[in-house]
Design a protein around this nucleic acid. Structure first.
Lengths: 148, 148
DNA sequence: GCAAATTAATTGCGTTTGCAAGCATATTGC
DNA sequence: GCAATATGCTTGCAAACGCAATTAATTTGC
């Protein structure tokens, strides 16, 4: 319990929750999307083929496949994403961002970056920021085509 | 978007989500509680008075007060927590852990620590772990009586 | 080449959550 | 001391989510 690894893991969860909570309100108010909708589009943007199947998205976002289906439906309706069918495998239904979706993504990303700047504020020097980047990179479960 | 602060914030979210997802399954299977129920009891344990009102818990956990009400109800029913009334302010309903709840908390904490050990595995040396601790500490929104 | 097993997506159902309204108690302003 | 305001908690309602079952399509074993 006083083990430093445990403390670090707890702080990791808390810091991420704090940051996400702050983001959530601003995203809803300014951009009209949820953090999860933002992350969905970001995953698409960062994928090699700029498109992902529902199960791929589900794995990356740690949600069930049915959640992706139900998240994508309203996003299609308001024109943020579209669906694409694979010619070789008729089971696959890819999610792709529309131009409007990509624009919305970049707007939201600007808000995200502003918040990220506040998070790593003045008291962090460049070397520390770099060091943190390499550390937190090691913490992510590596999957090749994953988020940043 | 390629800004290092932004990358760090994204990785922070992803790493925390990855870790939480892994924890979630094991907590449900081994201990029969959710990560949020675990964190609720942990917040109580770490609070100065070993008890917190519903709104205090809500703020620390970034959920609504109604969620705390609805989380606490089944936890009271199975004997993990209990309620305490404040003599001076009849509006307050404190949540406190029972002995059984504290035991469950420590069991879950052992699982948590094991996972945390896997997260910061062999490739991290002591100095790095210490460095990470001080860094992620700065990232948490300071509230005095907060989580670790 | 075909049956069996696997994989992808969707839908029904129950659970969890947030928002807004409502109620009870405290605090403030005068 | 009392009305107005603020705070803490709970509940109704709707949105979001996971699990299990279903359907459709592909892959595997022989």
């Amino acid at each position: 319990m006083t083990d430093l690894h445990t403390t670090n893991a707890l702080r990791l969860l808390q810091a991420a929750d704090d940051f996400r909570a702050g983001l959530s309100g601003e995203f809803a108010a300014v951009h009209g999307i949820s953090v999860n909708e933002f992350l969905l589009m970001l995953h698409l943007e960062r994928s090699a083929a700029k498109r992902l199947s529902r199960v791929d998205l589900a794995k990356r976002m740690h949600v069930s496949a049915s959640t992706i289906t139900r998240m994508a439906a309203p996003m299609e309706k308001i024109g943020l994403v579209d669906r694409e069918i694979d010619a070789r495998d008729a089971r696959l239904v890819f999610v792709v961002t529309t131009d409007a979706g990509r624009e919305k993504l970049f707007q939201a990303l600007a808000t995200f970056s502003k918040r990220a700047g506040d998070l790593f504020d003045d008291r962090w020097d460049d070397e520390e920021v770099e060091k943190f980047a390499s550390m937190v990179r090691r913490l992510m479960a590596a999957t090749g085509d994953m988020l940043a």
